[in-house]
């Protein structure tokens, strides 16, 4: 990938992203989400009762009877951070040789904005959720130090 073009990011549709703890052997659209993948607000109210910091609140959902508990990853990047789903656009200037050798320049273009990116773990395995987010936070902090941000 050679560049990311964020100029059209404001017009990209807004979504909620979910990182789920399973392998789903399908890529593509589905109309089943509306009826079957909705946050369990009743349970979330109970679990978030003592959580004052909104960025630390947990989300609860279900996949085929398995309860999954998640937290938003984006606050780790700082307040108001967004994530983008991008598609790769091969440069129109690429020569046939570059295309053949896979050396042509590629631009990543946002096609969707993710206001939240929720990382889930299975119910019973919440310690891994905390551990993953903590490691990720450390990674971002280290990254900032290396790049003097």
């Amino acid at each position: 990938m050679n560049s990311i073009d964020l100029s059209s990011s404001n017009s990209a549709k807004e979504y909620l992203g979910h990182l789920v703890p399973c392998k789903i052997r399908y890529n593509g659209p589905s109309d089943e989400f509306t009826d079957n993948f909705n946050m369990d607000n009743e349970e979330m109210e109970v679990l978030n009762n003592d959580v004052a910091d909104e960025s630390k609140q947990v989300y609860v959902n279900y996949i085929r009877g398995r309860k999954i508990i998640g937290q938003d990853v984006l606050p780790i990047f700082g307040e108001g951070s967004k994530a983008f789903l991008t598609e790769n656009v091969i440069s129109s200037d690429a020569t046939m040789e570059e295309e053949f050798d896979n050396t042509e320049s590629i631009n990543a273009k946002p096609i969707a904005t993710l206001n939240k990116l929720i990382n889930y773990e299975r119910d019973g395995n919440e310690s891994r959720l905390s551990s993953e987010l903590q490691k990720f936070q450390e990674y971002i902090e280290l990254n900032d130090i290396i790049h003097n941000n």
Binding site: G65, R66, R122, D123, N125
Partner: peptide
């Protein structure tokens, strides 16, 4: 409820069932 029955029985790791 079916949700509570299933999510209880399908916790992970299996020792948490």
């Amino acid at each position: 409820t079916p949700v509570d029955i299933s999510s209880g029985m399908l916790r992970y790791p299996p020792s948490q069932n």
